[in-house]
Amino acid sequence: MEYLLESNHLCKKFGSLMALQDINLRITRGKIIGLLGPNGSGKSTLIKIINGLMTPSSGELTVNGRTPGVETKKIVSYLPERTYLNEWMKVYELLDYFEDFYEDFRRERAEQMLSNLRISIDDKLKNMSKGTKEKVQLILVMSRDADLYVLDEPIGGVDPAARDYILKTIIGNYNENATVLLSTHLISDIENILDEVIFLQYGQIRFHRSVDEIRSQEGKSIDQLFREVYRC
């Protein structure tokens, strides 16, 4: 069976620091997966490798059977933790940009979501609050018909009301052929939508299990489990 995302003995070293160590992942389609772990556990490194922003020191990672490159970038929709948008652009210029470069970009969907959140497409990014910029960025990312969505801290910078809208957007916009991989610290906010969780620690996978299994076997919420596993 071909996995959507697969890694074998993936390692990433920075000098003497092992950021990722022997990561073996098998991710199938149609799932919402939480990538969880404390700061410095390797989440960002893994996400960067998936998106071709970093190359592994050893081992391999494939998306839909290919190592990260032009072909995988066509089917992976990535929301970085950073605001990557050009400040001088207006929202409609960003829509043009995404439409030009991503064949799977659905402009009508983006325009609909923007109007739901009362963001005008004539607004300049420069005049927006940080939270609004994050919303625009998420809308752009979720308006693609991608196979894999990689969302790094998608709800970190926005208020709880917008948080609900964003989570609804995420669930509403991915189809059963696609998978969402999202990393966050705000576990209790998202645990109801997760199918699986991956716990990372010191650059290694602590475990990768289905949420139902955890709930029935351990009788705990993911949030409780996280606090126990990573107790300082």
Partner: peptide, 8 residues
């Protein structure tokens, strides 16, 4: 660069 380098 997060956008530039994730364009196909």
């Amino acid at each position: 660069g997060y956008l530039s380098f994730t364009l196909p």
